[in-house]
Nucleic acid binder design. Structure first.
Lengths: 161, 161
DNA sequence: TATTGTTATACTCTATAACTATA
DNA sequence: TATAGTTATAGAGTATAACAATA
């Protein structure tokens, strides 16, 4: 699908795809940079970890998987969050190797504050668009597409055993 | 606009806005992380700088402004690109303080390769969506909204002189 | 042995403050 | 003096390899 061979003599797998992707990549990078500059007390990555951990004290391995980062990466950022008082580590009673990351009250407060600031940022950005709902819907669609790919990948990882 | 006071007794500036923003932020961070894991020879930031510099040897101050980073940040990443052979620095004849960052042939090749890989990544992602064109359009709309805000900001910075 | 998480180490991106060279 | 860019230094996020503790 999406063949679009325009006969321009190009060697790449699909010419239009590369240009379209370049545009999309630049936009995502720009959005990320904009988020980095929003003044919450949390870095985007700290926000992301707290948000995922907040949805129920997750064990470290599972968190790292959902964040798509290596285990030592999670350890490092969790260290910072624990030091800042936003999270604490709890040991699993049944299996003492397992560690769960849980939010403290301060962590919940920090998340709420960040959400409020992000909310204002997004409102101001969407105010410059003609159809905010369409934009939001498109992002949800992209998110679902990533869900599908993640699910497929974890099946592939578990299947060929 | 977007008042939506639901009378739930919340204290924040706008309750729905925070939840909606949280979703959007998580999606943008997830997209960025996915991009980081795409195997090009460039980091996303290196890609971004090369892409902007490639559109005509830009002077450093202007590049930093478009990237929304501090000047030393640009210097550091440019160092890495020059060391890798992807870019070179050229001095302005008229004003010897000014430095322009230009792509080498290797730099153009690296960009083309990255674009091809990103192209495949995006194609696979969009293949999981029902309406790819709508998604692409929404991203363009967001980009235009950021353009508007940037233009307004630079006017504000220059105006109150 | 296998698994969970951490330590050791290194590289990139980011920033602020101080500096050099040029205007 | 003012401006363009760099150097010095520091903090956060990322990774791989090696490790300790537990199963």
């Amino acid at each position: 699908m999406i063949e679009e061979r325009t006969g321009s003599g190009e060697t790449g797998p699909d010419e239009g795809a590369a240009e379209r992707a370049a545009r999309v990549v630049m936009i995502v990078l720009r959005l990320f940079r904009a988020l980095e500059r929003v003044d919450t007390d949390l870095t985007p990555q700290q926000y992301r970890i707290l948000k995922l951990a907040g949805a129920g004290g997750e064990r470290s391995a599972r968190l790292a998987e959902r964040l798509a980062v290596a285990k030592p990466t999670l350890t490092a950022t969790a260290d910072a969050l624990v030091a800042a008082g936003y999270a604490r580590r709890e040991t699993e009673p049944g299996d003492r190797r397992v560690v769960r990351l849980c939010l403290t009250d301060a962590g919940h407060s920090a998340l709420a504050r960040a959400d409020a600031v992000y909310g204002q940022w997004l409102d101001e950005l969407l105010a410059e668009t003609s159809d905010p709902d369409q934009v939001l819907h498109a992002l949800d669609v992209l998110n679902q597409a990533m869900d599908v790919r993640r699910a497929r990948r974890s099946v592939a990882a578990a299947g060929p055993a």
